[in-house]
Structures are given as C-alpha cells and as structure tokens.
C-alpha cells in the first residue's frame, strides 16, 4: 500500500483489499516444541478477508505461541504459514509487517522511552522512503517526509481518541490506555490484518465493551481483518465471526460463535478448570 493509504482509508471509510481466491491468512499443520513441551501440535488456522476471528483457550494453550509463529518470532518446527497464498514461513517479522501483518503483544509492546507520538512515528518505519544517509545528511526529501510522518501519527492518534496524549510519556499512562496506544502504533504500520493479544487486559468491563465496538468500527472504516486472543468469552462471542479454541497446543474446536457457545460444555469436559475460566 502507498504511504497515504491510511489517510485514504480514513477519509473514504472503505479500504478492502483486492479480491483474491486465497484466504488472507492460512496456517497449515503448524507445530512447535520447546524442550519437553509440545506448545503447538498440528494447528490449522484460516482467516478470510474482513473477518474478525477469535482465538481462545486456557492459559498455556499456545495462543501467543501461535501468534509468534504467524508474525515470525518463532519458526515452527513443521507446517507452513501463508499470507494471501504466499508462503511466509521463512520471512522475518519485519518482512511480514511489510506485507501487512500487524500485531500487539500480551504485555504492552511499546517503546517505553518514547512519547506516545514518537511511538506512532517509529511504527511508520516501513512507510518512510528516504534512507539513512538521506536522513543523516538532511536531504530535502527527508525533511518533507518527516512532516508527513508526524502528521500521519497525529491522524492515527486522533482516530484512536488519543490526540490529547500525543506528547505524554508512557509512564504516566494507565494500562488500558497503553493498550490503546499500542493499537494506534500498530495502525501506524498500516496493516491489513491486525492481530491483538489480549486487548482487554487492564480494561474495565465498560471499556472492554467499548473496545469491542471499536474493533467492529475499525473493520468497517479501515477495512481491517482482525485476529484476537482474549479470555473474556462474552466479548469473543459478541465480536467474532469465527472462533478457534486451543488447548495444550491442539485445536479443540472451531466454528461460528453459536456453535462454540454450544460446545463450551464439551470444552469443559476436556479442559476442566480452564473452561471454567473461559465461561
């Protein structure tokens, strides 16, 4: 996408990727093992364009590990990950960002010595065209683009309702706000698919509710596809089009929200305590 595409998306309220026959994101038989622990065991996973997909399961089920495999932080032992039909299993995380995969972290992923604004600016890294030399020697292009980067950062912050905090340092912010800033920063990378790892942690129930609305809104306005890990089952059931349930690294169930709702009893039988936490 071009550097201005986010602007465009914000203005038109519509930005759907080209129609393709491939699913947006497709993981096939992904397995990974840490020492004695099979963290993921032949997981199949698929996300179509414009969907909001939930990934649930008890603690230690391998949800974040799966995110790490998709975003390139872990290399799966076996299995492939494809993006719009292109095999991305061997790409570095930053190369995957270039393709349009954006993610947040379970524990706030921000640069903590930067202000809110600087965080959103640095996240636009790949949208900046000039090179290091141009920057250090002060080429006209670098000056012009820096203004653009700054404006775009303000735009994203405005969209997230964080404009008033632009110059704030992170240590003055609440946990919930930090999570919002993190989403703003990832939007700065101009993603097609947004992978959120427990976005509700640290939010009050009302705030969680509002964040659900915000996700639905982002899909409409920015044409985003969303994958979300969340423990809060009512939220997942409300927001998601499709849900995957992971347990001990294995796919326990998948389906549309009403199927999963019905399945929860079964899940409990498998997961015991974990399912209680889920419900």
């Amino acid at each position: 996408m071009s550097p201005g595409s986010l602007t465009l998306a914000l203005l038109s309220g519509e930005l759907m990727a080209d129609v393709v026959e491939y699913p947006l994101l497709h993981a096939e038989q992904v397995s990974i093992r840490f020492g004695g622990l099979q963290a993921l065991d032949r997981v199949d996973f698929q996300v179509n364009d414009g969907e909001i997909v939930g990934l649930i399961g008890p603690n230690g089920a391998g949800k974040t590990t799966f995110f790490n495999c998709v975003s390139g932080f872990y290399a799966p032992d076996t299995g492939r990950v494809a993006y719009r039909g292109r095999d991305i299993t061997d790409l570095r995380p930053d190369q995957r960002v270039h393709l349009g995969i954006g993610r947040t972290f379970q524990q706030v992923g921000l640069v903590r010595s930067f202000t809110v604004l600087e965080n959103v600016m640095v996240a636009q890294h790949q949208k900046v065209q000039y090179d290091t030399g141009g920057g250090m020697f002060g080429s006209p292009q670098s000056w012009a683009e820096e203004h653009l980067v700054r404006d775009r950062a303000f735009e994203v912050l405005d969209y997230m309702g964080l404009l008033h905090l632009a110059h704030s340092r992170l240590d003055g912010l609440s946990y919930g706000t930090l999570k919002q800033v993190e989403v703003a920063a990832v939007l700065g990378t101009d993603p097609d698919v947004l992978m959120l790892d427990e976005p509700l942690a640290g939010l009050s129930p009302e705030e969680g509710e509002a964040f659900g609305d915000r996700i639905l809104e982002m899909r409409e306005e920015l044409g985003l596809t969303v994958v979300v890990i969340e423990h809060h089952v009512p939220f997942v059931l409300r927001v998601c089009d499709y849900i995957y349930v992971l347990n001990f690294g294995q796919l326990l169930a998948e389906g549309e929200p009403h199927d999963i709702r019905g399945n929860l009893a079964v899940a409990e039988a498998y997961m015991g305590e974990g399912a209680t936490a889920l419900a």
């Binding site: 995380p93 960002v97 972290f105 992923g109 890294h125 790949q126 990832v186 700065g188």
Partner: peptide, 8 residues
C-alpha cells in the same frame, strides 16, 4: 521484538 513487530 516490538521494533521488529513494527517492521524494523
């Protein structure tokens, strides 16, 4: 990790 998640 955060840096590379932003495409750096």
């Amino acid at each position: 990790r955060v840096a590379s998640s932003w495409g750096i």
